[in-house]
Simulated scan of single mutants.
Amino acid sequence: MAELPRTKLAKLPRMADFALWATACETALWPSGTFWSAYCGNRDEAVDDVIEADPIAAAVRAMMSARTEWTGTASELLGALDEMAGERVAKAKSWPDGARALAGRLRCASTFLRNVGIKVAFLKEKDRSRTRLILLAIALPRTQAPRLRE
């Protein structure tokens, strides 16, 4: 506990107090950096599990593995994902039946996709057509904050 005032993390995770306490105490039990490595590994594994459990997020990840950017409407994206997923998946009850449902599911999955390096943005066309676009782009995944000590 004497290490707690000197313990610093470059970026605080969601459970900041827990991470600081565990990092301060870790050298009593393990080599320095062990806790942060395990914490980040568990978090990354949880994100992968969520993406694999969501057919839309999994299809977006698969689609973006072959490209760096995609822009279009929700209807166009649904068509592209239908084609990629195949008829069996596209007919499943868990698959969205329209553009609005797809956009909602994509909004829910965007945080997890961002963690694996896929940026999801919802844009409006600048002209008066009121067309809404979805931008998918490969971005650098969130880096795991290294441990800093003063």
Rank of each mutant, 00 (worst) to 15 (best):
W95C: 02
M63I: 02
R61Q: 14
P13R: 01
V50L: 09
R114I: 03
T34I: 02
P55N: 04
D127N: 15
A46T: 11
A59W: 05
V50H: 05
E69C: 03
L77I: 08
I134C: 07
G86W: 02
V47D: 09
L12T: 04
A46R: 15
L12W: 08
R105Q: 14
A103G: 07
I51Y: 03
F18Y: 15
L113G: 07
A38Q: 14
L106K: 10
R147C: 04
A109G: 04
P146S: 07
S110D: 01
P13M: 06
A137Q: 15
L123P: 04
Y39I: 06
T73M: 09
D82E: 03
W95S: 01
A2C: 05
L135G: 05
A16C: 10
L106G: 13
A28I: 01
L20W: 02
F35Q: 06
R130T: 05
R142S: 05
G104P: 04
P31D: 09
S129I: 03
D127V: 04
M84K: 13
M84H: 08
E76T: 04
I138C: 07
W21P: 00
L12C: 10
C108K: 14
N42W: 08
R107A: 10
L140D: 15
R43W: 10
A85Q: 03
G86Q: 07
A53T: 03
E76F: 00
F18A: 12
R114N: 13
E52W: 11
K93W: 04
T143D: 12
G72S: 05
G117A: 03
R107Q: 11
R14Q: 13
L81Q: 04
A66I: 02
P13Q: 06
S75R: 12
A22H: 11
L4P: 05
K11P: 00
I134R: 05
R130Y: 12
M63N: 04
R114L: 12
R107P: 00
I118T: 11
F35R: 02
E83R: 10
R14W: 08
R43G: 06
A2G: 04
D49E: 14
D127I: 01
T73I: 05
I56C: 06
D49W: 02
R128Q: 07
G79Y: 01
K11F: 07
A58G: 06
A90L: 09
V50P: 00
L148M: 08
I51K: 06
T68N: 13
A90D: 11
L9R: 15
A53Y: 00
A62R: 12
D17E: 13
W30L: 12
S75P: 00
